[in-house]
Amino acid sequence: MLHYKITQATAALFLAVAASAQSESAQSAQVPVVDLSAPYSTNEIPGNRSFDAPFFVEDDTFPRIQIFDEKFKQIVGDEPTIHSIAKSANDSFNAFHEAPLVRGDLVYFSSNAGSGGSGPDRNNRLLHVNLTEIEELHGDGNITVTYNEPSDRIQMINGMAPYLNDSMIIATEGRENAGVEPGLFRYQPETNTTTPLLTSFYGRRFDSLNDLKIHSSNQVIFVDSLYGFLQDFAPFPELPEMVYAFDMDTGKVRPLATDFVHPNGIALSPDESVAYVTDTGAQNGTVNTHLPASIYAYDIKNEDGFLTFNNRRIFAHALTGVPDGIHCDDEGNVWSGVGDGVAVWDKRGELLGLINIGTTSANFVLVGDGLIIVLAETEMFAVRLDSSLNPAKLHYAE
């Protein structure tokens, strides 16, 4: 595995130096917990909050945890904390962006591209941090951020999922100026080996692959959206924006769902009976609040490995911004990164609570033992819940 310690001298990455001395000195108190679960506690909030303004009632200090339902108190527990554990040294570089996953003691994730956002001439970065260092940090600080150098076939990582033998499946958006199309790849970090799995829909170019989950039938369920085109590193789309299933045993690929504005994240319930797809159509370079900032649910029918999505229905609508990365915990609750942090709903679509960072959190990972790592573009947060209902690790079929 090729990797480099990120330092101030690595100016192209614009990341802060790890400051181990801060681990002992930077202590912070328990995060405020605001109980909004009382009957009618939010029914008279003035309707003047903008699309991307963080949600608050009276007190607008962040971060904080907001409870909308009594059940969220069990998840949060008595002593939750939220710590800033890494920052970009340059606010124009979104180092902590997408595709987080846990492999052993490492948390992998992808940056946005280059030094100033996604673009035609800059690939993004595959990075990781060490959970041991996070556990040793008892307050705010800057942990060590390390980056990998996978194959040049890996252009614009936007989704990752853990797979067999400590490998991972990566969904890429591709990059036209590099001559690389979007696709699915298997990556083995220990050997720095990349294996292409799927690079077109029967010879037709995908738009820009976004998120994925792996079904127990050894199929990759992935989202293809046109954000690569909207951000100028992909050509005009050749296909509709759809959710697909790719069978890694047979090599077959077929669409499962369509009729989105811009599909983005995808999650499966723990028993794989329901799929959740986020639609971020309200935000595509400009804001149009008449378009979806929503999560849709589908019943999954599995006939001997032939999967279909059925009974499409609205599941939730983000309070702030759009729902992006989405995951289920072992209890079937649905978590999504939104415009001000991470929102949580139960399996019925009842809003339980909000981990309100005060800024957009494109994605996150439920590590286990109450630890959640949140990617907030220029900053990474460690959320620790003292929980009787442990949000545990993400449900993945490995």
Rank of each mutant, 00 (worst) to 15 (best):
D121P: 10
I357E: 06
L351W: 01
F260W: 04
I221F: 07
Q188L: 12
N210P: 00
L239F: 12
N158D: 07
V274I: 15
I154C: 02
Y244S: 03
G117Y: 04
G353Q: 00
G117K: 05
F96E: 00
N48Y: 08
N123W: 05
L101S: 08
T172S: 14
A362P: 05
D35S: 03
I169K: 04
D59S: 15
L198A: 09
A99T: 01
G179R: 11
A21P: 01
G141M: 03
A89P: 12
Q22S: 14
E58G: 10
F62I: 05
I45H: 02
V243D: 00
N123F: 03
L351M: 10
S388E: 07
P240D: 06
R122V: 15
G265R: 01
G251F: 08
D211M: 00
E241K: 11
A397N: 13
E176P: 00
V223R: 06
N264A: 08
I221R: 02
T278D: 03
G119T: 05
V180Q: 11
M160C: 11
G337D: 05
G141N: 03
R122F: 15
S23K: 04
E149P: 09
E24T: 09
W345A: 03
V277T: 02
G174F: 09
D346Y: 09
G353R: 02
V31M: 06
A29Y: 06
S37P: 05
E350W: 00
E79D: 13
T191C: 06
P235I: 01
D60S: 14
Q22F: 05
T320K: 05
D121G: 13
G285T: 01
L101A: 04
W335H: 00
F56M: 05
F246L: 08
Q66L: 02
Y40H: 14
F55C: 03
P182M: 11
T10P: 07
I157Q: 04
R204A: 11
E133K: 04
N158M: 03
N124A: 10
L212M: 08
A382P: 04
E398C: 08
H262Q: 15
Y147E: 13
A9W: 04
G228D: 05
E135W: 10
D59R: 15
R312L: 05
I143P: 01
D340S: 09
K393C: 09
N148L: 15
H138M: 08
T250V: 13
I154A: 00
V344H: 03
G119S: 15
T278G: 00
L319Y: 02
L15A: 14
I67A: 03
Q27T: 08
A26K: 06
E379D: 10
L226A: 15
E190D: 14
F109M: 07
A257P: 08
L291I: 04
A21S: 12
H327F: 11
A26D: 13
M248L: 09
K5N: 11
I295H: 02
K73Y: 10
P189D: 10
N112L: 14
D259T: 12
A11E: 08
Y40C: 13
D329Y: 08
T144V: 01
V57Y: 12
V76Y: 05
G117A: 02
A362F: 07
E379K: 12
D330Q: 09
S88G: 12
E70R: 01
A343H: 03
V374F: 06
E136M: 07
V365E: 06
G183L: 06
R204W: 02
D299C: 12
R384N: 12
S167I: 04
V76G: 05
